[in-house]
Amino acid sequence: MKPRKESSPVHPDLADCHPIPSVAHLFRRHWFLQSPMYFIRWIYAVFYSLYLLLVLRDPTDSDIVEYVENTTLAMLIRLARNGRPEEYDVTVGDCKLRASGGYKLKSWSLTYKKGNGGAEILRFSRNGVEIGDRSQIFSTVFLYHVHSLHTKSHVFSNGVARHIVENDVKTLLESSYTSMPLHNALLHSCQSPLEGTVAKLLGYICPCTRESVVEESRNMSALKGHQTKQCWEVRGKDTVAYKLFRLRQALQVVMKRHAIDQNWLEALFNHTIVHSVDHYLSTQQAHLRFSLHPWDAGCTTYQAFNTNMFRVLISFPTLNPLAPNTLRTIHKPFYQDLYRELKKIDPKIADTVTASVMY
């Protein structure tokens, strides 16, 4: 008997999202079930964003550190190079993002400490220039997280969906939904927050250029040497990084039980768990006033409204309640098994995990 040929790992490519015939049905499903939710969500976003204008406040040191520690940015945290206890560094030395107005985010670094008195930012630099304004700091961190690090959780999804469809992997059918048409809309439609004319008209445009987001999605330099296990060893087990490590282990175990090729572990981990968890965690600070453009001096009322609209429409989970595609709503052995294992680690997170990139 010939040994079974192992399938190749998914090639990460955010731009590989065109509606070719083999996946055309996924696009039809998306436009029928998921797309209408964005229009409904936009109406909600307008009113909620107006309400938020009444309660917004400027970011503090604690807000910035909390955002770093409670999103996938936590994977970049390291003990401070000076060796002082309770001090930590986050360093990004190579970034390709470009913003409107000709601005480029080439690098940034953050040094902070935590103690009994809370978090304190000791130093923040952007492109080698120290920045003290907390709103600009938060805006820079937010822009990098959303358009670089979080986007990297999307890059495997097109390949995963294509593999499932073209190889008729019924066990993972629900993991083929929405991802490719969503990416196509985000990159190529007039509704895209990346330079889309409709997005600008409706108030949720973001400052990053489309080309730079795609280019940065292929730039994995910031993640070199930043394995999740090392991160939680730095900060301890009560961290987002440690939870991600355990969630990955749970997925690996469930994949073995259901005879799913382990070569797909990283792709499925990002496609399902990392993406959903990152969205869930990054929406916990909706009350902060800052401009989406890191180089804006101050934050006008319109800029704050634009930030609110972007966060409610793009950062907050947007799901069709009749077809949410969350693990807990899919009554198939693999997904129910995975849901049970994730629930043992964190019930709230388990409830938010979707079978595919849905938003």
Rank of each mutant, 00 (worst) to 15 (best):
Q227S: 11
L292W: 01
S276F: 02
K152I: 06
V198A: 13
F47V: 15
I345C: 12
W232T: 06
K229G: 07
W264F: 14
T60F: 06
D337L: 08
H271P: 10
V213N: 01
E195M: 06
I137H: 04
L186P: 05
A99T: 01
I330D: 04
V277R: 01
L79P: 00
K104L: 07
L247A: 05
S175L: 01
D94M: 11
E341H: 15
D351L: 01
A323P: 09
S179T: 12
L244V: 05
A286M: 10
K224M: 08
K106N: 04
S49P: 06
S282H: 06
S192E: 13
T326L: 04
H271D: 08
T354Q: 04
R235M: 09
K114W: 07
Q252K: 14
G93N: 15
A45N: 04
E6H: 14
A259E: 15
L172V: 11
V277C: 05
S135C: 08
R328S: 04
Y48E: 09
A286F: 12
I164M: 04
E87C: 15
E87F: 07
A99D: 01
G117W: 14
E86Q: 13
I121D: 00
V68M: 01
S157M: 03
T301S: 05
H145W: 00
S291G: 12
V198P: 08
E120Q: 15
L110Q: 01
T354P: 05
I121R: 00
S221I: 09
N82P: 15
L56T: 13
Y144K: 07
E215V: 12
E216R: 09
L338Y: 03
C190A: 15
R218Q: 15
S217G: 06
S49L: 04
A259T: 14
K2E: 13
T352G: 00
V165D: 09
A241Y: 03
V198T: 14
H226T: 01
N184T: 10
G196A: 02
K237N: 15
N306W: 03
G196N: 03
M75G: 03
G132R: 13
T72S: 10
A297G: 14
N158H: 08
L292Q: 00
